[in-house]
Design a protein around this nucleic acid. Structure first.
Lengths: 324, 324
DNA sequence: CCGTTCCAGTTAAACGTTTTTCCGGATTAT
DNA sequence: ATAATCCGGAAAAACGTTTAACTGGAACGG
């Protein structure tokens, strides 16, 4: 572990000069500059990040706080975030809150202690934990917007509308809703986009709220069995949709012959269940990448008024919906 | 951001004393100790990790280097690792090498620069990148052992044997192999466990090597179509198995009626494909947890001769295998 | 020729901790 | 009573950087 002092000694110059060379400061001559650079190469010098962090107050690390890695939606996001971050020389520190607010808070504290330069955060709920406020570093929300924060996410409203339009195209006019949690903006907008697109023509037979983890509550199962003449089930996300298909199939109700199902997210599983799931695809990689870029802009000081951060979504037509 | 100096000023004592209190050093009186502790609570003092890192040479952060988060096997591992690490006050820095050796090396360099205290690593290939050698910090391999490293993983040999036994029980005597990469010990042992369990009674009709990402090569697809009287396909992991089922179904070959398929890993998808996949389950949470514990022991200085780190696996019987 | 500016570099302070050394007074041992 | 020990705490150095302030000489303008 060569230090800046070693370099200085080797070249026969002061540490300040070495530092200036390494940071491309102008006040150093060409020949000395070359020498220092060469010595650095030879000794395989790498700056000590902790020391830099202490002096500069910046760590070149960012936090990534996700609610649940076992939801296949998030690993894709995480991968995109990590890769673009790494290309920018940023280290990604991961927190998986397991959907638990306490875990989320603990994770945020840990990140704050380590002095990450910024945080990309997908909150588990509507409340804003104290550490976020006291952090003093930029925060960019991902996938789940929240008033007062910069955010990068999909156009959920559009997604809901696309689904509504498609439903009507396929002749479905009476639907059941397995919506996501009421306190999540992302769930709310999907739902509202759908419900309010054609209020006259699309009738909501029933609605049950579920968590995004896809676990079907007793109420949801009852609703699915009763169905009340609904011909299409609109799930809050793919996990819910897939569990729904499972449940229905298990109970001998054929999908899509007896009832159709649509999801939201286009997670990779959507392609491998049978029937394959018709759903709304989000540009996950673009979202992850953009979140990092946005965060970096803010870290660099720009208080840019959150630029375009809403991505369009597309309908992916597969076999879980039947025209009637 | 209250500093130790603020505490000292508030209590009217030297910074050294504050530090001693905070680190449970003995040479400080009870009353002063109380005062300091109370002040710390009031000011919401949290130690500046970068400063500690600089002084102590330890960062309380660990690296987690994975080959591919989109393989559903790894998120579960990552979740387990992150959670146990956080409970120990350790921050997890994530690298997703995307199965690419260069990315892996870059990631390791990044981690090393940040001075992580140790690394949990699932290598993409058999080679050992330079940063690992020069790191000077403990490394624990996870899921993919490698000679000369501490490792935590499943008993792949046992898994292979269980599958072989099960195959015979179900009356399969002629099988096709879609094994994982030859240069991965974990793939090799699964395969050998199977092949060598009952060399007389189990006949290997053909074998094709694939990557663990599950993408079926032309050779694999040809083999699957030809089949050469194999009644059971033994896949190197669940991803391969699931893609195989897909491919076969698509080509009008019924699973398990015309040919049976088994996988390895019991990823969550195994439960949601149809037919549901018969496979070998690994105790993922235990593996992740143990890896962190083992790493921590080594970080604490113990050069313990890698304690028991091989976990037993179990057969999960579902519907992708038919008895004949 | 002298004062100013500029250049190339040095010194030293600072970031927030931990740790080693030191110190004065009280207690104990002789 | 004197010396040795112990105790609670303080002072200061150190970790590896960056940066503000400084310096000595060369170049330059008047």
């Amino acid at each position: 572990m060569a230090t800046i002092k070693d370099l200085a000694a080797k070249v026969g110059v002061s540490v300040a000069t070495v530092s200036n060379v390494l940071n491309d400061k102008p006040n150093v001559g060409a020949t000395v500059r070359q020498k220092v650079l060469r010595a650095a190469k030879e000794l395989g010098y790498r700056p000590h990040r902790a020391a830099q962090a202490m002096r500069k107050g910046r760590t070149r690390a960012i936090g990534l706080v996700l609610p649940d890695l076992t939801n296949p939606f998030f690993p894709q996001l995480a991968q995109a975030v990590e890769n673009t971050a790494r290309n920018l020389g940023l280290l990604v520190c991961l927190i998986d809150s397991q959907g638990c607010a306490q875990g989320e808070t603990d994770g945020l504290i840990l990140l704050s202690q380590h002095g990450v330069d910024g945080i990309i955060w997908c909150p588990v709920g509507p409340q804003v934990p104290a550490p976020v406020r006291t952090l003093g570093r930029p925060v960019v929300l991902i996938d789940r917007p929240k008033p007062g924060f910069a955010a990068v996410h999909s156009n959920y409203l559009l997604g809901g509308q696309l689904l509504a339009k498609y439903a009507l195209q396929c002749g479905h006019t009476r639907v059941g809703l397995l919506s996501g949690p009421r306190n999540l903006e992302s769930a709310q907008q999907r739902r509202n986009g759908f419900v309010r697109a054609f209020p006259k023509r699309l009738e909501i037979a029933w609605e049950v709220r579920l968590g995004f983890d896809g676990i079907l509550s007793r109420e949801a199962r009852d609703a699915l069995l009763r169905r009340r003449r609904a011909t299409l089930i609109v799930a809050g996300n793919d996990l819910i949709a897939i569990n729904t298909i499972h449940f229905l199939t298990e109970r001998g109700i054929a999908v899509p012959d007896e009832v159709s199902v649509v999801g939201f997210d286009d997670i990779s599983w959507a392609r491998i269940v049978s029937p394959r799931l018709t759903t709304i695809a989000q540009p996950l990689v673009a979202i992850g990448t953009r979140a990092v870029e946005l965060l970096q802009e803010r870290m660099a000081g720009a208080t840019v008024p959150s630029r375009a951060t809403v991505f369009d979504v597309t309908l992916v037509e597969r076999e879980s919906v039947k025209s009637i």
